[in-house]
């Protein structure tokens, strides 16, 4: 199966995300924000980082990239999986590909630490590293078609303890924690595998 990681100007988790996908068994391309041909990819990943410096708001400027329009088209074909990690999740929300928005953390500070998560009755630990990760949705009923990744100990004031969500109908997942970091680095554990295994299962 073939995956791509989008390197927006300012993305900074592209290399390790690509390495993780390789380890998970994908062929991986790194493409930039101007790419519009996503035909050959089963999995499209928006990695973490600070696209356009996050200067107006996190992920705000990236949504105007040609690759975002291409992703919207690709979703309609229902043959692929879209994953947004951290800044990637922020971009997906800003582009209205996922519901909700991400606000500044409740303590107004960047938070870098390990958090306990629960997804589909599985518990696991992944690191977070963000300043704007407080998930907001005006009405929880809007997420009835989504599986939720939840914090066990809400670190940033996210509504309903939401760390990430999976839109089952469109096969789009966004999450603030970084699965790629706890997967390829020695001594960091392999909990990130839970996310990559789930994606492979969904793509079967």
């Amino acid at each position: 199966m073939k995956a791509c990681v989008i390197n927006f100007l300012g993305s900074n988790c592209v290399d390790e995300t690509a390495q993780s996908l390789l380890k998970a068994g994908f062929f991986v391309d790194i493409i930039n924000q101007n790419e519009t041909n996503l035909e050959r990819y089963n999995l499209i990943v928006l990695s973490g980082g600070f696209s356009w410096g996050d200067y107006v708001s996190c992920g705000r400027i990236a949504k105007f990239s040609p690759v975002i329009s291409a992703i919207k088209e690709k979703i309609k074909q229902k043959n692929s999986f879209i994953l947004g990690i951290c800044n990637g999740f922020q971009i997906l929300c800003e582009a209205n590909i996922l519901l909700g928005a991400l606000l500044e953390n409740e303590n107004q500070k960047f938070i870098s630490r390990d958090v306990d998560l629960i997804f589909k009755n599985k518990t696991f630990k992944l690191p977070i590293a963000h300043h704007q990760g407080r998930y907001y949705i005006d009405d929880i009923d809007k997420l009835k078609d989504c599986d939720l990744i939840k914090y066990q100990n809400n670190p940033n004031g996210s509504y309903y303890d939401i760390a990430g969500l999976y839109d089952k109908k469109n096969k789009v997942m966004g999450l603030m924690p970084h699965p790629e970091r706890n997967y390829i680095t020695p001594f960091k554990g392999e909990d990130g595998k839970i996310i990559f295994d789930f994606i492979k299962e969904e793509l079967k």
Binding site: F64, G100, A101, L103
Partner: peptide, 9 residues
């Protein structure tokens, strides 16, 4: 509308 704000928030 499109750059400076996100109408949801």
């Amino acid at each position: 509308k499109e750059i400076l704000t996100n109408p949801l928030i």
